[in-house]
Amino acid sequence: MSKYLLNKFLFTVDRDPELVERYRDDPQGTVEWWEAGEANRILACHTGESSTWLAFTDDERAALTEHDHVRLFELGAHPFLTLTLFIAMFERDNTEPLAFQKEYGRKLAHLSPPYPDIAT
């Protein structure tokens, strides 16, 4: 398991409006594409430098593919990263103000301290 990789995915997808839409519409394809080509690029964009060993676990891949923010939090993804990305993807589907944020909180309400470690 790599909390770093989960957070890197959430961070990089959230910062690209085209990737946000791609992830919303085709989560499995986006996760597969990102893991195959982007996951091992060095953050900070040094041209030509990359790693070769980072990959999602089956559980991480499933949580990302299912847009399961509760499971992502349980796996150690930072809640601010899931919240901002998922607001970008799903807030538009609601007519009530802050509806997605309220639902996000309700779905995490069963958790109590100590929360999963989100340090990377």
Rank of each mutant, 00 (worst) to 15 (best):
V13T: 10
T84W: 10
H110I: 00
G29N: 07
L98A: 12
L108M: 14
I118L: 09
G37W: 12
T82P: 01
Q101K: 06
R15G: 15
A99Y: 01
T65M: 10
V70D: 03
N7V: 01
H110E: 08
R24Y: 06
C45F: 15
A55W: 04
Y4V: 05
D26N: 12
M1F: 10
Q28L: 13
G48C: 05
D14W: 05
L64A: 02
S50V: 03
A44D: 15
C45P: 08
A119R: 12
P116Y: 08
C45K: 10
L85Y: 05
E32C: 03
L19H: 11
R15N: 13
D14M: 11
F9Q: 02
R24M: 03
P116W: 10
N40Y: 01
Q28C: 07
A99E: 09
S50R: 14
R92L: 00
R61Q: 11
A109P: 00
E21A: 13
L72R: 07
R61H: 15
A55N: 06
N40Q: 02
E35V: 09
A77Q: 07
A63V: 06
N7G: 04
C45W: 12
Y4Q: 00
E38S: 11
D58Y: 01
D58L: 14
T57N: 07
Y4I: 03
D58A: 15
P17N: 14
F86A: 03
F86E: 04
T47D: 11
I42W: 12
R41V: 07
L19T: 09
D117S: 09
S50W: 06
L98W: 10
L54I: 02
S2W: 05
E18G: 07
G48W: 04
T84S: 14
E103I: 00
R24T: 02
T65I: 11
I118K: 09
E38T: 07
Y23M: 09
E74W: 04
E49T: 06
I118R: 10
K102D: 10
E21M: 12
F56K: 02
G48I: 06
S51E: 13
T95F: 07
N94F: 14
I42Q: 12
N7Q: 05
E103K: 03
Y104I: 01
L83C: 07
E66S: 12
A119T: 15
D93H: 06
F86H: 09
A62R: 13
R22F: 08
Y23K: 08
F90G: 04
D59A: 15
D26P: 02
A63I: 05
S2D: 11
V20L: 10
S50Y: 09
E96A: 14
P97W: 01
E35G: 08
D117N: 15
E18F: 14
W34Q: 08
K3S: 05
W33S: 14
T30C: 15
L19C: 06
A77R: 04
L6A: 02
D59H: 05
L75T: 04
F9G: 00
